[in-house]
Nucleic acid binder design. Sequence first.
DNA 1: CATGCTTCTGTGAGCGTTCACAGTAGAGAA
DNA 2: TTCTCTACTGTGAACGCTCACAGAAGCATG
Lengths: 343, 343
Amino acid sequence: MTMSNTGGRRRPPTIHDVAREAGVSRGTVSRVLNGGHYVSPTAQEAVNAAIRKTGYVVNRHARSLITGRSDSIGFLLTEPQERFFEDPNFNVLLRGCTQALAAHDIPLLLMLAGTEDERRRITRYITAGHVDGVLLVSSHSGDPVAEELREAGVPLVACGKPIGLGSKVSYVAADDRDGARDMVRHLLSLGRRRIGVVTGPLDTPGGVERLAGYKEVLAEAGIETDDRLVVSGDYSRASGEAGAERLLAQAPDLDAVFVASDLMAQGVLTALERAGRRVPQDVAVGGFDDSSAALAARPQLTTIRQPYDRISAEMVRVLLAQIGGEDPAAVILPTELVKREST
Amino acid sequence: MTMSNTGGRRRPPTIHDVAREAGVSRGTVSRVLNGGHYVSPTAQEAVNAAIRKTGYVVNRHARSLITGRSDSIGFLLTEPQERFFEDPNFNVLLRGCTQALAAHDIPLLLMLAGTEDERRRITRYITAGHVDGVLLVSSHSGDPVAEELREAGVPLVACGKPIGLGSKVSYVAADDRDGARDMVRHLLSLGRRRIGVVTGPLDTPGGVERLAGYKEVLAEAGIETDDRLVVSGDYSRASGEAGAERLLAQAPDLDAVFVASDLMAQGVLTALERAGRRVPQDVAVGGFDDSSAALAARPQLTTIRQPYDRISAEMVRVLLAQIGGEDPAAVILPTELVKREST
DNA sequence: CATGCTTCTGTGAGCGTTCACAGTAGAGAA
DNA sequence: TTCTCTACTGTGAACGCTCACAGAAGCATG
């Protein structure tokens, strides 16, 4: 890329200009910029006035060059791209993280690692120190990125528990098992006894935990689990539709379905409608996430709310703490049952 | 062994290390890094080998400090945050831009300016030169950001034509008017004559143009426009639902609705179902965008596809050209009618 | 042989910060 | 007074890179 002069842009004022304007030295200006310790009130005031007058904004490149920090954070998505399209949760998470970081004046770099090539390029970029830390969204166990970054010593916080990395990687997650328990208890309280489940991918902790919650509650209620009532999907709408069809074929007498994501639940509704089952009269349907898909669905979905606002805020908090030298941490946040039309 | 998190990061190799390894000078390494002109094949090879061996990655901060470029691009969203949640189009655009930039090895900084405070902070950040250019997503006419950035001489490409800035700001847009014409012609070809419209916000060019296309085609067909058949929304699902209710009240005999976005069309479907109108038998519904909302809708929406892939690719192309010194440009891309179940 | 031209290479300066260190002024203690 | 301590300020040296420039080597031309 050869970028010639862009025309109208003037050279922005430097710390030097501010120092001259304020009648102090660079050092003093720098001290004011970085917290104002050991600066006299007089100088403090003069510098602030000069900053306002000149419109000075710190040159982050120069700062980064010497501090070794970049003062920016990467948001890394290693999911297949279709999910990013389809799943409204990413939006919420991305927005939450961006805003939480903005409060600290830290820019967010968006990194999408769909292909293997992209993954390598991004890993290089990150390990070269171009970001101070990484917010990772990837629930898949086979994902080597988390391990690579951890080995390189890059501060990292995952959304959802990464498999196989134990306590070495920070993560923030909703209480999947407890959420699933709430939903299944709710379905039981409606008198439903033949409750099917469409799980998430079972190579992800989320998928496993939600299924575990389902099984636990049924066991507690003295209901034997029936393998014909259990099918698994991959969180996509299409897999929900297919899953519901398998369920209907294997267990035509089902009277409720717990679906491990709202998007899949949309697919389940489609399949049920096609099969002539009324929701919720014939079959009650419970989703998971409380994404915008839950409201878009007809009928609107009863679902388990994941506290995405808090999740993103916590991810940022934990990451910044870790960059500050603290040890990795795990945060589990409570979920909430949201009753709507589908149950 | 629990290694202290940040402690594990070694100082990355510098251009100096590479030069020593390759037995050449910094200057030669730099030349190889920047295109390899005026470098002998021997040196070229030695440098590349040294880069591979040391795992060197350029320090962008040091480079930026001297070049004055940041080699990064901002993606600025000034829409109200709810739309970002709800509208799947943003995802597609954001992903497209990120990937198009990745091909040039340029990171994308995500900037959300929901509040006035955020707007000011971000404007300062941008005008301070921390990004080389901005991809702007904001169709609202009252938005002062585009004008501010233009005045500051920041290369800028908008998605959709910005109102009131004439030819001074680059933009990339789909051919809204032509798309609307296609859809209305399609509805006419089905024999529908009482065609309602739910427009987008009429302070945006997209909203205006799609309405204009609707009116033109009706006029060409010799059908008088009926004000009772025209209501406007704001692209949200809720406004589509409300719009359809107004239409049904004002013109109960309508047999088709052209809706200016898929999301609003979802709302229209909801209202029609509640009113007992069958789609498409009683009322045909045409959307606009071909977002994932079109496939999620029941029945699936006939819609006008906006070529988001090409839009994002063109936005990046035009922006990089402008950074390279070229004049602002406007790009209009063709749309396509996608027939599905709703017509 | 000198001259010019092209292709290649090394060197010093400098981008705008922060940081370590040295230094100053004033207050209080000996 | 002199010394010490604290609060503050200025200065040079980096950080890692690119750029301009000077110079070397090779080759053709006069």
